[in-house]
């Protein structure tokens, strides 16, 4: 007994205790629910079997059902569009802003700090605000575009089937911009200034310095930002109920919203779990990118 105490206070026991606590929470709050989700996607779940663990085995029936849904390919296309365009927008604009604020003009760090506001705001609020901005009849954006003579009649961003998903993408880019900019700023700040001076003396133009110094030195940061951006975008749920509710006619619905509708609107938990299993594939790819990019760190 005494040896156990000594081990916990001074030795290996302490390490095991720390790892054990983390592992316990990970298993209890993420691992087991995840496995339960996998299990549910192979079961028949209805209101009567909701409370039991052992349910009728469904095999791949749930998957077949989901693939056969008329909106399946539309939702997949929307998800791909939403993920790719949101990430591209967040990353490119975030990188641009990070480089802009890196120039250290007067007030640069203060203004950069203010960008955090978008990060602090709840998604529902952001969705609400962008709903007002993008509103077809009284929206600010339409007013500006009309004032500038770019459009002649109001654009119904949220209710036009061709535009609805873009309305959510625009809001999501705005929401994730600060996170991208901040992480990329940190990466930029970690590159020693004298490398740029050396490259400048070696004859490199600004663009050549960016390509040969900034980008390769930012490799691990960019990998992390993209991986976290993918996860964050697949998690993005709040904007959909706040802006389009997946409509019109599912033209702005994505997998995460569809899974929620399936589980918590139609109480079809098995099929909801099945849809979320499809997302797991994407997240898994993101995790691989993230781990690989942070492993191959090249610094100083």
């Amino acid at each position: 007994m005494k040896r156990l105490f000594i081990s916990i206070s001074d030795g290996k026991g302490f390490d095991i205790l720390l790892v054990g606590l983390a592992m316990f929470f990970l298993l209890a709050l993420a691992g087991i629910p995840l496995l339960y989700n996998v299990l549910m996607s192979f079961q028949e779940v209805d209101m009567f079997t909701l409370g039991s663990f052992i349910r009728p085995w469904a095999g791949l029936d749930n998957y077949r059902y989901i693939f056969a849904q008329p909106e399946f390919w539309l939702v997949m296309k929307n998800t791909a569009l939403f993920v790719f365009c949101s990430m591209a927008g967040q990353f490119v604009l975030g990188f641009g802003l990070a480089i802009f604020f890196q120039q250290n003009f007067w007030g640069a760090s203060t203004i950069r700090g203010l960008f955090l506001v978008s990060w602090v705001m709840p998604g529902l609020v952001v969705g609400g605000i962008w709903s007002f901005i993008l509103a077809g009849d009284y929206g600010v954006l339409n007013a500006i575009l009309e004032g500038l003579g770019i459009i002649d009649e109001p654009v119904f961003w949220k209710s036009d089937p061709d535009l609805a998903i873009w309305a959510v993408i625009i809001a999501n880019i705005w929401l994730g911009l600060a996170f991208n900019m901040l992480l990329l700023s940190v990466g930029l700040a970690a590159i020693p200034r004298d490398l740029y001076e050396a490259a400048e003396l070696d004859g490199a133009t600004a663009w050549q310095r960016f390509r040969t110094i900034t980008l390769p030195m930012m490799r691990s940061t960019i990998g992390a930002v993209l991986a976290l951006g993918l996860i964050g975008t697949l998690q993005q749920f709040d904007l959909f109920p706040a802006m389009t509710e997946g409509g019109p006619a599912n033209t702005s619905s994505v997998t995460q919203y569809w899974a929620w509708q399936m589980s918590f609107k139609q109480y079809d938990f098995a099929r909801g779990a099945t849809i979320s299993m499809l997302m797991l594939v994407f997240v898994f790819m993101a995790a691989i990118v993230y781990v690989r990019s942070t492993r191959g760190e090249v610094r100083g």
């Binding site: 020693p192 004298d194 490398l195 001076e197 050396a198 490259a199 400048e200 003396l201 070696d202 004859g203 490199a204 133009t205 040969t212 110094i213 390769p216 030195m217 490799r219 090249v298 610094r299 100083g300």
Partner: peptide, 20 residues
């Protein structure tokens, strides 16, 4: 003239080698 057009080479105290 910007540094890249002066054709001078510099050895830095930190060496400033490109780590990648």
């Amino acid at each position: 003239l910007p540094p890249r057009k002066r054709d001078v080479a510099m050895v830095f105290q930190s060496y400033a080698l490109y780590p990648h």
